[in-house]
């Protein structure tokens, strides 16, 4: 007696569920490679949120007004929250928080290269929100429908919160662009520095992205890197024009036939150099992260000691 399940291998059954858009949940059977890919991707995503607090944290004490400071604090707090949602999602796959942090701190795990660029002026806070979070949203919205349930649910929450991040960034840019000539120049200068690194956030070209095909098949990813990069350019060029700013790419030109903007080639040598640890701030970011973790060790230990003491006291009372 043979049922359908005996005919199909576990991998085939798994793929059939994915193809039917059935979400995979933590206790369901999954191929080891799927589990590993997700742990890598989700933890990398979580690390990016954590490290992403650093370039903006740099400006909290120097925000130009109390309103801007409150907004920036709330945004940085959101990023800590996003990291926590994502670490929790990764933990459902069988890894531990300690393991993930150890991999981040040893340099084994990666985080988004964008955070290895410095934030030199207040206009950078505008660009980080408008461009960097804008790019992040494009990446993240399709992840709300990713095949792994806990990841998709975490992303729904992240996306809800992320749109305020982008809007406040655009507002900073708009305010600068409507201000004094020096302020507008500051906005343009920041755009010049952030434009290309932001395009790199979508990852290598499809031809150089060996994992994309499998991730698409498993419906972890729903669009390729190049598709998202094109969408981003199409979205951002008109916004830059609205601000009266110029995107630093002479090849940007509307293509009537494609109904999309043509644009120049990303400097892939720079991309790979930053990925490999040779960006402007790689060492500084990792060092700041490791110090925060090490200097916070006593807090974690004290909380454990306090919990143990309280538990003992309650045991005596009972």
């Amino acid at each position: 007696m043979e049922t359908l399940e005996q005919v199909l291998t576990p991998e085939e059954q798994f793929q059939a569920r994915i193809d039917a858009d059935v979400r995979i949940e933590p206790k369901d059977w999954m191929p080891e490679a799927y589990r590993k890919t997700l742990i890598r991707q989700i933890s990398q995503h979580a690390h990016s949120e954590l490290v992403g607090m650093l370039p903006e944290g740099n400006w909290i004490t120097r925000a130009p007004s109390l309103k801007r400071k409150s907004i920036l604090l709330a945004k940085v707090q959101d990023e800590a929250g996003h990291g926590l949602y994502l670490y929790s999602a990764a933990e459902t796959l069988g890894t531990t928080r300690d393991q993930m942090l150890a991999d981040l701190h040893s340099g084994k795990a990666k985080y988004s290269s964008i955070f290895n660029y410095p934030t030199l002026s207040w206009a950078d806070m505008g660009c980080v929100g408008w461009l960097v979070d804008g790019a992040a949203i494009l990446n993240q919205v399709p992840l709300c429908r990713t095949s792994y349930g806990p990841y998709a649910r975490a992303m729904v929450r992240v996306c809800k919160e992320e749109s305020f991040h982008q809007r406040q960034g655009f507002e900073i840019m708009q305010t600068l662009c409507e201000g004094a000539p020096e302020q507008k120049a500051m906005a343009q200068e920041a755009l010049n520095r952030w434009w290309w690194p932001t395009l790199m956030m979508f990852g290598p070209k499809d031809a150089d992205s060996p994992n994309t095909e499998q991730s698409m098949k498993w419906r972890i990813k729903r669009f390729t890197n190049d598709e998202l990069r094109q969408k981003f350019v199409d979205m951002m060029v008109p916004q830059a024009e609205f601000l009266g700013l110029t995107v630093p790419d002479e090849k940007v030109k509307w293509n009537e036939e494609r109904q999309a903007y043509d644009f120049g080639e990303v400097n892939w040598d720079e991309f790979w150099a930053v990925v490999k640890g040779n960006g402007l701030c790689n060492q500084e970011r990792l060092q700041a992260r490791v110090s925060a973790h090490e200097e916070g060790a006593w807090v974690r230990e004290a909380a454990n000691a306090h919990a143990a003491k309280r538990a003992a006291r309650e045991a005596v009372a009972a």
Partner: peptide, 11 residues
């Protein structure tokens, strides 16, 4: 809604 780490219930 999700999960988190904490030393005890209050935390």
């Amino acid at each position: 809604v999700g999960s988190l780490h904490a030393a005890d219930a209050t935390m």
